[in-house]
């Protein structure tokens, strides 16, 4: 709930025409708030998040029904999309460019933002822009390879990798996403928006010398309520695949660690991300 007003505002500015939101048993007033919004269609469910393959089945179903033939952006409530020139150019300009260059999908790197100091010690008012309290990110400690099965890019690294997965790097969270897709009935996401079928939609990257236009999903996970969320998560065990493996991770988060390092970079807008090579314009001049 605390993120929603800003989240909606962010995507409205980008020119999103309509929101389709699944509310999975929230109890903080989100349901009422969303129901009031004129451009939101809301579905509520009390069913198991895990049994629906972590919500992917719900979303696939909605896209199957309402998304066909349209550009669909699939993001979590803690993800804010930026792309080259996103301050000036609406999403429709981006999708027109993708259409013109014959592409049906668009890739984005998930970039974890975090505060300086313990994660549970920042002041965050409900409805505030999360970027006002989460300033920092890891510049470039990302590892990429191709996924052997789905052919997608498989990027790992970043702050969670650095802090919590040092002893088992192969377990560290996947950071590549393909959130924007011109949907067709036979498409389906596999795990979250990391992988999609058919595999050619995963080809949002160039394997030759060149590059293509890509974006960044600013991940605002590390707001103060992360510690409570982690405690909940430990009990619910609804995380991807092998929940037990993530126990130490949540345990560490509950203790409110300081994720900041002297070499962290302060976020300064989309142009900075381009310069650092976290996203690029490709031929979208």
């Amino acid at each position: 709930m605390s993120r929603l007003p800003h989240w909606l505002a962010h995507y409205r500015t980008l020119g999103v025409a309509h929101f389709l939101i699944v509310d999975n048993g929230s109890d903080d007033g989100s349901t009422g708030y969303l129901a009031e919004q004129p451009d939101v269609s809301l579905w509520t469910t009390g069913a198991s998040y895990k049994a629906a393959r972590f919500g992917v089945d719900w979303l696939t179903c909605l896209q199957f029904r309402y998304g066909v033939g349209r550009w669909c952006l699939t993001v979590d409530a803690d993800e804010l999309l930026v792309y080259p020139g996103s301050d000036e150019r609406p999403l429709s300009a981006l999708t027109a460019h993708l259409d013109r260059t014959g592409r049906a999908s668009f890739g984005a790197l998930m970039l974890d933002l975090y505060p300086r100091g313990p994660v549970n010690a920042v002041d965050f008012a409900s409805g505030q822009d999360p970027l006002e309290v989460l300033h920092w990110f890891d510049g470039d400690n990302y590892r990429a390879k191709r996924h052997p099965v789905f052919g997608n890019l498989w990027i790992q690294g970043g702050v969670r990798d650095r802090m919590f997965f040092g002893s088992q790097p192969e377990r560290s969270p996947t950071l590549n996403k393909t959130p924007l897709v011109k949907w067709r009935r036979r498409y389906a996401y596999v795990t979250s928006t990391h992988q999609i079928l058919p595999p050619n939609l995963n080809e949002v990257f160039d394997t030759g010398e060149g590059d293509r236009v890509s974006g960044v999903l600013l991940h605002t996970k590390f707001l103060p309520n992360i510690t409570e969320k982690s405690a909940e998560e430990l009990v619910r065990k609804q995380h991807f695949e092998n929940s037990d493996l993530y126990q130490p991770y949540y345990q560490a988060l509950i203790e409110g660690p300081d994720l900041w390092a002297p070499t962290s970079i302060r976020y300064a807008g989309s142009e900075q991300l381009e310069r650092l090579g976290l996203m690029t314009r490709g031929d979208w001049a």
């Binding site: 890739g107 984005a108 790197l109 990302y142 990429a144 390879k145 191709r146 890019l153 990027i155 590549n176 949002v204 990257f205 160039d206 394997t207 030759g208 010398e209 060149g210 590059d211 293509r212 236009v213 890509s214 974006g215 960044v216 090579g277 976290l278 996203m279 690029t280 490709g282």
Partner: peptide, 13 residues
């Protein structure tokens, strides 16, 4: 041609 020595979301030579 891309940017030399950059591996990222949309470039994996």
């Amino acid at each position: 041609r891309g940017r030399a020595g950059l591996f990222m979301q949309s470039r994996l030579p």
